[in-house]
């Protein structure tokens, strides 16, 4: 029982981590909270349904379509909602935040319109496949989710740490001006960041669809707020913090539901934020100075 809950918690936590990574990348580079990230994630989830249920294509195709669609959404978000506000005199520093909130409402309405309200089941051929290991049951879906999340996190970490583009992204995140005098085309890096973050949201959308077997146009908001909670927990703009924070939230939610009251499930994230803000405002992995923005 305990082990089973642990597996559930890790599965959920690894999805949360992927969502939070999207938030943290954008925050790191642009210094803004992308409130549309949850809705982009929701679009990814719907792409999964359309591809697997309506078109009856295989799961891998769903990932490709979701990545493509959310990457395009990310590009448009940057191009039309964020870039016009950047570097303009007299634009409030809250403007980009409001702008992303606007985009999130727009995307939610569009998805109502396109996909219809209410829950949509996410069917896949292997939903029921499971393994019995001793007394515990492990679902194939959980293994797939876990493996994909781990691969994604390792690939992102490797990319950020070892590749030229990844280093340019980190440099831009630390200081845009410095990166630009070192020869980084920071405009390109910003676009790249929003696209990568959005595509990760899209992948997470499919994973959530698989895990909960249900997708709806409102799911973006709660997931977005949880992602936000996680990056506050882990440290704003911090990649390791997003991963660890995701796991912590996934595990705590699972255990509260299993051993406590399932009604408090969604409150956990926010209880954790309040505690963290009181005890360690810069987050678990955040440095004090990182709280200053960039």
């Amino acid at each position: 029982m305990l082990l089973e809950q642990l597996i559930n918690g890790i599965t959920l936590g690894s999805i949360y981590a992927i969502i939070a990574l999207g938030f943290t990348l954008v925050f790191g580079v642009l210094g803004i909270i992308n409130m549309a990230h949850g809705e982009i994630f929701m679009f990814g989830a719907f792409m999964g349904i359309i591809v697997t249920s309506t078109l009856k294509w295989p799961l891998w195709a769903a990932f490709l379509v979701a990545i493509a669609v959310t990457a395009i959404l990310g590009y448009m978000l940057e191009r039309f909602a964020l870039r016009p506000l950047r570097g303009k005199q007299g634009v409030s520093h809250l403007a980009p935040l409001i702008s992303t909130i606007g985009v999130s409402i727009l995307l939610e309405n569009i998805s109502h319109h396109l996909f219809g309200a209410g829950n949509h089941p996410f069917r896949n051929s292997f939903a029921e496949i499971n393994f019995q290991i001793g007394s515990i049951t492990v679902y194939l879906v959980q293994i797939i989710i876990f493996v994909i999340s781990i691969i994604l996190m390792m690939a992102l970490s490797y990319w950020l740490l070892r590749t030229k583009a990844g280093k340019a992204l980190r440099a831009t995140a630390e200081n845009l001006e410095t990166a630009s005098i070192l020869g980084v085309n920071t405009k390109k890096i910003i676009i790249l960041t929003v696209i990568i973050a959005s595509a990760m949201g899209g992948i997470a959308g499919i994973l959530v669809g698989m895990a909960f077997n249900s997708v709806n146009p409102q799911m973006g908001l709660s997931m977005g707020l949880k992602g936000l909670a996680i990056i506050i927990l882990g440290g704003m703009g911090n990649v390791k913090g997003a991963m660890a924070g995701g796991l912590i939230l996934g595990l705590s939610e699972t255990f509260v539901v299993a051993y406590g009251d399932s009604g408090y499930r969604d409150a956990i994230a926010f209880i954790i934020i309040i505690i963290i803000l009181l005890v360690r405002p810069q987050g678990i992995f955040g440095q004090k100075s990182a709280a200053e923005g960039r």
Partner: peptide
């Protein structure tokens, strides 16, 4: 770039 290593800073010089 204070959050990057000395070597990475040098690498960024040759970006």
């Amino acid at each position: 770039l204070s959050s990057m290593t000395v070597y990475e800073n040098l690498e960024m010089g040759a970006y």
